[in-house]
Design a protein around this nucleic acid. Structure first.
Lengths: 198, 198
DNA sequence: GACCGTTACAAACGATCGTTTGTTACTCTT
DNA sequence: AAGAGTAACAAACGATCGTTTGTAACGGTC
């Protein structure tokens, strides 16, 4: 058995937090997952909450970077939205445990850290809102939809993916992104007859 | 102070389970919420898990009854979908604590009861799938959408409402149902130009 | 090869958990 | 008025929690 690194510990913690939840995971559970005793985990981290903070921060950074890339990939709202959706799906599926912990266990954080995560999430969601707002201003998107509400709907679908998606299932990531993008777009896009009427 | 009924206890449990989560709620917390000691709760229920089972079952029954009413309210897929969405929103907003516990804390149930809830949820979601499938067969809905995926998208939006909706906020329940119904419909409905082309 | 920091174990700490026990006080029934 | 049943308290049970302590084995560095 080779010795463990701090990253090994955090990764295993993410796995257990995602599967059973933060409160349902004990330090002895985590030790068992790593093949060591519960108390030995403290050679790598200084508290259980530090593990949660680390896992959640990693996911937060991934989402933030993904959104930044998507926004600068184009200046057309329609393309930006496609990139946002594709990036989000990639993050969720490539870093499932962290994403799942980020989405479901952030409430277990202390007030101090939870506040930071909420702000991070707000910034992330603001990208979706601004893209849709810009699309409406530009005339590409329908003006009779509430931009904030539409953004919330899209994010709701994205955030729920980890709850049902099976990597070995019937739907592959690419066609998921494709169908979701079309579903979302048809909710905000102006129809052809509307455009013809101008 | 009047004495407490079993229903009072279950209602308070739902409140705490929804706000803090099952594992983060102790029997002493629950007692505190009710103005009694933790041990005194056992005059009303026989275990902590029984409380969770009760809360989750109540929400499950509400969702089930709502779906049944919606399905028998019409035999047009488009109207049935509207009724399903409206009913779901009403259940979530009128019984928020139970719904929230149902959606987020079912994983804390023992294998035995969790299985039952999963089946109940599957039956509920099957209504959405069949409505959309029927709509495609009838020609009202687009045939290029994956019915199962579309149903999942709609349910994702519905299940996320409890995470962001503020009763005293900017959006009232009726216009939420309306906008959501229009958003979902435009995702599955055939466009006018498609219909014209026939 | 002596030294030092790291990683792990074994054992225990106090706190809190779900739950049980024994007892008191209240309310309803007869 | 007597009795039964319920709802609450006060206190404790064993189990488990996050964490700490002391110590032994290990790896890399001068």
């Amino acid at each position: 058995m080779s010795r463990l690194s701090r990253d090994d510990v955090i990764e295993a913690a993410g796995r257990l937090f995602a599967k059973r939840g933060y409160h349902a995971t004990s330090m002895r559970d985590l030790g068992g997952e790593l093949g060591i005793l519960g108390g030995s985990v403290y050679a790598h981290v200084s508290s259980k909450e530090e593990l949660l903070v680390e896992v959640v921060q990693r996911a937060g950074r991934l989402f933030g970077e993904s959104a930044a890339r998507a926004m600068s990939s184009s200046d057309h709202p329609e393309e930006q939205l496609r990139a946002l959706i594709g990036g989000h799906i990639r993050v969720v599926l490539d870093h499932r445990d962290e994403a799942q912990t980020f989405l479901n266990e952030a409430t277990a954080l202390g007030e101090r850290h939870r506040q930071a995560i909420v702000e991070e999430r707000d910034t992330y969601e603001a990208h979706y809102r601004s893209v849709i707002t810009n699309g409406i201003t530009a005339g590409t998107f329908r003006s009779d939809v509430d931009a904030n509400l539409a953004a919330t709907f899209v994010l709701s679908i994205l955030n729920a993916i980890e709850r049902w998606y099976q990597p070995d299932g019937r739907v592959d990531p690419v066609s998921l992104a494709d169908q979701l993008h079309r579903f979302a777009l048809s909710g905000v896009l102006r129809s052809q007859e509307e455009l013809d009427a101008e």
